[in-house]
Design a protein around this nucleic acid. Structure first.
Length: 319
RNA sequence: GCCAAGAGGU
């Protein structure tokens, strides 16, 4: 079971639908499962299907469950929400027999990410129990729909706040052009850890304020790949390719996002050969759609149509 | 033991 469970989790992470189905069949064959163990595995499979975008498969599995628990309901709800089936989500939500705070919070988030803040707010107001996650999710929904003032008002009214809540509010301001609000909130944040620092570095970088970005970066005990990439993007945006490259080469680890940022920097500053060399150094299984796109962009910036065509042909196609 | 909230790339 632990074996099966961890394999299913891997499918979720890797978005491996075929493998998930394979394990699904395997689970159906094993006959000595206790009811709650079966539900447990089914929930993991539901999540995997949802994350692979297979709403129909998730629904089929759910309907076959003899005894779905509230987790099963919530996971299917999340799958609908994540895949844009707002109406199905709502009708499922209305049928959940014992909704818990997670059910409510998931439904609110679904409305929020569809831009339906009035519906989100209504649910938020009538729900029986709200917790920190509910409040934070609602603040984030306001922020993402551009309602920064409402986000702040709700944030200020929260009965308690943790670091995540503060960080969401900080990120909300960093999306606006109010650097002063970002800094004011950052000055009051209870703890400056890597996420909040990265947001502020990103806010400085986006505005070309590299002196301040660098100062904060240097004051950190250690950044992670996100922090480094935010700074690199800032230098690249200012046209300081040397500093961007030097940081890129010194950063402790690189991922698809940092690769893409650097390729895009090379592309924008007219260094096609370096963009291409970097692209070629990326392991094939790490090249996601945005990485490919950045290479396409590099060729297009260079006016190299042949390179674009070559890239398009080499790109893996979804079948 | 399985579900909901936080930062960087097109």
């Amino acid at each position: 079971f632990t074996q099966l469970a961890s394999e299913i989790r891997q499918c979720s992470d890797a978005r491996d639908f075929d493998r998930a189905r394979q394990i699904h069949r395997q689970v159906l064959k094993s006959k000595h499962l206790r009811q709650d163990d079966a539900t447990y595995l089914a929930n993991l499979l539901l999540e995997a299907y949802g994350r692979c975008g297979s709403v129909e498969e998730a629904q089929r599995l759910f309907q076959a469950l003899p005894l779905p628990n509230v987790f099963s309901w919530n996971i299917l709800l999340e799958a609908y929400a994540q895949n844009g089936h707002l109406d199905r989500a709502r009708s499922l939500f209305d049928r959940i027999p014992d909704k818990n705070v997670v059910s409510w919070t998931t439904m609110i988030k679904a409305y929020g990410s569809s831009g339906l803040m009035d519906d989100a707010k209504l649910l938020f107001e009538i729900m029986p129990v709200r917790n920190l996650v509910t409040f934070t999710g609602m603040v984030k929904a306001y922020a993402e729909t551009g309602h920064t003032l409402d986000a702040r008002e709700l944030f200020d009214s929260m009965p308690e706040r943790n670091l995540v809540a503060w960080t969401v509010m900080l990120a909300a301001y960093s999306q606006t052009w109010h650097l002063d609000e970002v800094l004011a909130l950052f000055a009051r944040i209870p703890e400056r850890e890597v996420v909040s620092c990265s947001i502020v570095i990103g806010a400085y970088s986006a505005r070309g304020r590299m002196r301040e970005a660098r100062e904060l970066f240097d004051s950190m005990r250690e950044g992670n790949v996100v922090t480094w990439t935010a700074l690199i993007a800032g230098y690249a945006g200012r046209g300081d390719l040397e500093e961007a490259r030097s940081l890129f080469e010194r950063m402790p680890e690189r991922d698809t996002v940092s690769w893409t940022s650097m390729i895009t920097a090379y592309a924008q500053l007219g260094h096609l050969e370096e963009a291409r060399a970097l692209f070629d150094s990326i392991p094939i299984d790490r090249r996601d759609a945005v990485v490919w796109n950045s290479m396409l962009y590099a060729f297009s910036r260079d006016g190299c149509v042949a390179g674009m065509i070559e890239t398009l042909r080499a790109m893996p196609r979804p079948d």
